[in-house]
Amino acid sequence: MIDRPSMDTPRFDISAALQRILQDEQISPPLAAILALTELIENSDAGTMFELVKALNDGTQVLKTTTSNPISLNAGCELFTAFVTLFPHDSANFNDLKKELIRQGQQYAADALTYRRKIAQLALGFIKDGSVILTHSYSRVVMQTLLLAHQHKRISVFVTEARPRGLGIKTAEGLSAAGVPSTVILDSAVAYVMDKVDFVLVGSEAVVESGGLVNAVGSNQIAIIARAANKPFYALAESYKFHRLFPLSQYDLPSHNSKILSFPSLSRPEPSVSSSNATIKSANFSATETTHSGHARPDSDSPLRITQEQISQNNPDVDYTRPDLISLVFSDVGSLTPEGVSQYLVGMFAG
């Protein structure tokens, strides 16, 4: 007789695990994905490597459904799955191997929390005293770099508002609280302010195989303006954000879908009037509310309204910046050219 698992045995919820891990402000989505997959191994009853890799792939598919922008999560999942498949299988039995994979995954995540400090120290050498810096949206590694630079040098920072999420305000508030001179500018004022800055410093959702950058929407146009003004454009990225993705345009990103930049039909709010009043208003409209061309004009009592929520839902969260627009990528593995990122990725996934 085949033993079947009890229906009372709780099934591991990797989505819940991810959300719990992300409550720690210091843990970014790729690291949270690695830790969630580590917990999946811990709770898995897989008895072979084939079953374990299948469980990891299934868990990865579930994690992708937790967010509209799975790019950074994908980078972490991809890195961890590659690590598991390339890990030397010389343990005495499979349970020992699983324990070692769990230990290694947890150790990697703990070590990775030190990467931002390494990047900040590396980038510090490129920041001169008196520098005026432009940054975009909010990034943990950029914040750590700017705060470290403030301890040693005089800097001032322009921060884009970063619509639609407005995370640039969070950056400016954090910098101001630490005593860093900073001011928020409109996203549309980047070209206006570019002549005042020495260089651009941004974070990343992912650095892809081409050496290009996926980051908060608006990064691409900032890079284009920086290139036109002959100003360096630097990206900061932990190595666990290096991603085997090769987009050729904005529409190749996994986060793109048919709802982004679509032309939705706008509906008017229903007027709160009685049926008799509605009949009267309809008659009056047909009699008086027409243009000279004979087309009816919208009723002034029920105007079309476009909300910020509608704008946000119809626009992308991230965009892609081509490698030729990026001066350097500062990472925990060194300061790399975009071509250097490509070479590093090839080596990292080749075992």
Rank of each mutant, 00 (worst) to 15 (best):
P5K: 08
T9F: 12
T9R: 13
F12V: 14
L18S: 09
Q19W: 15
Q19E: 15
R20T: 15
Q26I: 09
Q26H: 13
I27C: 03
L31K: 12
L31W: 05
A33K: 03
L35S: 08
L37I: 02
L37F: 05
T38K: 01
E39N: 05
L40F: 04
A46D: 00
L52F: 09
V53F: 02
A55E: 11
A55C: 06
G59M: 00
G59Q: 04
V62E: 04
S68Q: 11
N69F: 08
I71K: 04
L73F: 08
L79M: 11
T81L: 04
L86V: 04
H89W: 07
N95K: 11
L97F: 15
R103V: 00
Q104C: 08
G105M: 03
Q106Y: 13
D111S: 10
A112Q: 07
R116W: 06
L122W: 05
A123I: 13
Y138E: 03
S139H: 05
Q144N: 13
L147T: 14
L147N: 11
Q151P: 01
H152G: 03
H152S: 13
V157C: 00
V159Y: 06
V159I: 10
T160G: 09
R163G: 08
R163D: 05
G166W: 13
G166K: 04
K170A: 12
T171C: 10
S176Y: 11
G179V: 12
P181Y: 08
V184M: 03
A189Y: 03
V190E: 01
Y192T: 05
V193E: 06
M194D: 00
D195Y: 13
K196V: 15
L201Y: 09
E205I: 11
A206C: 00
V208C: 04
G212E: 06
G218K: 12
S219A: 12
I222M: 08
K231W: 13
F233M: 09
F233G: 06
Y234G: 09
S239A: 02
Y240V: 08
K241P: 05
K241Q: 04
F246R: 12
D252G: 02
H256I: 15
H256P: 03
S258W: 14
K259P: 08
I260K: 07
S262I: 07
F263A: 14
L266Q: 10
R268E: 11
P269R: 14
P271A: 09
S275M: 14
S282T: 14
A283R: 14
T288N: 14
P298G: 07
S302R: 14
Q310A: 07
S312D: 06
N314M: 07
Y320P: 00
R322A: 14
R322S: 13
D324P: 08
S327H: 11
S327P: 01
V329Q: 06
G340L: 04
S342Q: 15
S342F: 11
Q343Y: 13
L345F: 02
V346A: 12
G347H: 01
F349E: 03
